[in-house]
Simulated assay, not measured.
Amino acid sequence: MLIATFAAGCFWGVEAQFRQLPVSDTRVGYTGGDTENPDYKSVCTGLTGHAEAIEITYDPDKISYQDLLALFWQIHNPTTLNRQGPDVGSQYRSAIFYHNDEQKALALQSKLELEQRGVFNTPIVTQITPASVFYPAEDYHQRYLEKQGRSFCH
């Protein structure tokens, strides 16, 4: 099993999208910042440096990292800095947190290909950075939309 970590706005909707793929597990949480053991309230201030993110456990024999990247690019706008839809703040930034050199190379390659094909009218601002400590979000955030009987946020 391998781990992939992405940030693409509010983690509720991001998790719901990735759970439709043949992945082993998902969990939402906070990563990419400086504050140890952040909680939702502190992350929402924008002062922790953390992004709302999803950690995906997957079997590369069932789904490739490239497939995960393809969905990542499809489900959000990677050209808006610190914003996804109505959600504004650095915690909603677009980011790929790679766990090894192969993930880094594939992430950079996929971003370059999108830029070369002109898929977006403005530059991609997605950060591609090494994965750091992932702090799971509070239990009520895990599979939030599923618990609410919903499949998307907005």
Rank of each mutant, 00 (worst) to 15 (best):
Q66K: 13
S90W: 00
Q116K: 14
D39S: 10
T57S: 12
L71I: 01
V23P: 11
E102S: 14
E113Q: 15
T57I: 02
Q103P: 11
D39K: 09
T80P: 03
S94E: 08
P60D: 07
D61T: 07
K41F: 09
E102A: 14
G33W: 04
Q74C: 06
G89Q: 00
V43K: 14
E52D: 08
L71C: 04
S42P: 03
T48M: 09
V119T: 14
S110L: 03
D59E: 09
I54N: 11
K111A: 07
L68A: 05
T122Y: 08
P78Q: 02
G29E: 10
E102Q: 15
D67Y: 02
L114G: 07
G49E: 09
R117S: 13
V119Y: 04
S90A: 03
E15M: 05
L112Y: 10
Q91L: 01
L47D: 11
T122V: 15
A51T: 08
K104N: 05
C10P: 06
L106S: 01
T80K: 09
D67W: 01
T31W: 11
E36M: 13
K41W: 07
H50F: 01
T48D: 03
P38W: 02
Y92A: 11
K41V: 12
T26H: 13
Q109I: 04
N100P: 14
F97T: 11
R117M: 04
